[in-house]
Design a protein around this nucleic acid. Structure first.
Lengths: 183, 183
DNA sequence: CTACGGTTTGGACGAGTGCCCAAGTCGATT
DNA sequence: AATCGACTTGGGCACTCGTCCAAACCGTAG
């Protein structure tokens, strides 16, 4: 596997994440993917065992990068309320149907039809939950694991809903209630 | 439109909701649909203008029924905490990858690629939010609209996550924090 | 120079797709 | 009995799909 091979693989996975967002997981075809990546269709199955494998690898690595980015938020947060604030604003930078939200949703849904992908995504999610829970535990939040699970779920749910309806103004205030500190 | 026509339309939409759950929105084909409904493939495009239209009609009516079902929960609930409890247990009846969760997710995702469907689903969601918010307002919950929006989003987010990871035991306790009553 | 292995090409394969339509069935109305 | 219109049939059209593969390319090692 020379450097040339590695570059083509990367071009293909990059094109894959773009197209998953634009056309949906099942809207991505071998030929479209090759065209976007600037290679010939035959190359797709030379570098990857199947189209599914290519999409999965692309999505999982994008998700991993995303979680690492959210992790950086934790390091700067001073209070639990701060975490909510930061998470929310990190998401609000994007419009309702932004690339990140769509990629997350598409990938989650794809896991219901692909056991291998499901395992990989579950690992990423568990990792994020664990880091969040650890931070909460360190900062006096009650029931840190459950709080992390609910907060992560809420963030994903808001992603879905934001594409359909605008959020209420006081969303952040309500979200802050989730991270109640032990009294 | 005779009674015969109406029965076939219903058999097709019923088969559609089943297949969307089993195979995903884009995994449903004309012929598969017809086979499941026990009719010939040509009938699909006689009764519906397109496959998309059939899927959309089936999904929206299923979603509407679902929201009406959740609405019944509200009528029996005595306190805000009760609402959370009931919503959660209504969801927990189903396994992680239950039909309802999957249909919701699939439909939400399909809205990103179909403007007409998006409008219809947004109406259903807005309706549910409004009923929830009205109930909260009547029962002294602070910021009822935002609370309803966050709770609805969390419920959907938990639907997504539950397929991947088991929930923590104390999820309900954390969720109850969302519906804090004005002090 | 030859030989070689990783890479690339473009076309082929069979299967499946949404949609359409001429022809036919069948129950109700005239 | 004849006619009508709603309904149904099954096949056909013009695609796209994932995957595969023989052949060509090309930088490097012998």
């Amino acid at each position: 596997m020379g450097a040339r091979s590695h570059e083509v693989r990367e071009r293909l996975t990059t094109a894959a994440t773009e197209l998953i967002v634009e056309l949906g997981w099942s809207g991505v075809s071998t030929r479209l993917l090759a065209e976007r990546a600037g290679v010939t269709p035959g190359l797709v199955h030379y570098h990857f065992s199947s189209l599914q494998a290519l999409l999965s690898e692309a999505a999982v690595s994008a998700l991993t990068r995303m979680v690492d980015g959210l992790d950086a938020v934790l390091e700067q947060a001073k209070s639990p309320e701060d975490v909510v604030e930061q998470l929310l604003s990190a998401l609000s930078e994007h419009s309702g149907s932004d690339p990140m939200s769509l990629l997350v949703s598409e990938t989650f849904l794809a896991t219901t039809r692909d056991a291998e992908l499901r395992g990989a995504v579950a690992t990423v999610l568990a990792d994020f939950r664990a880091r969040l829970a650890a931070w909460f535990a360190d900062h006096g939040v009650d029931a840190p694991e459950a709080t992390a699970a609910v907060l992560a779920a809420t963030v994903d749910g808001l992603m879905l809903h934001r594409a359909l309806l605008p959020e209420a103004e006081a969303t952040a205030d309500v979200l802050r209630r989730i991270v109640a500190v032990r009294s």
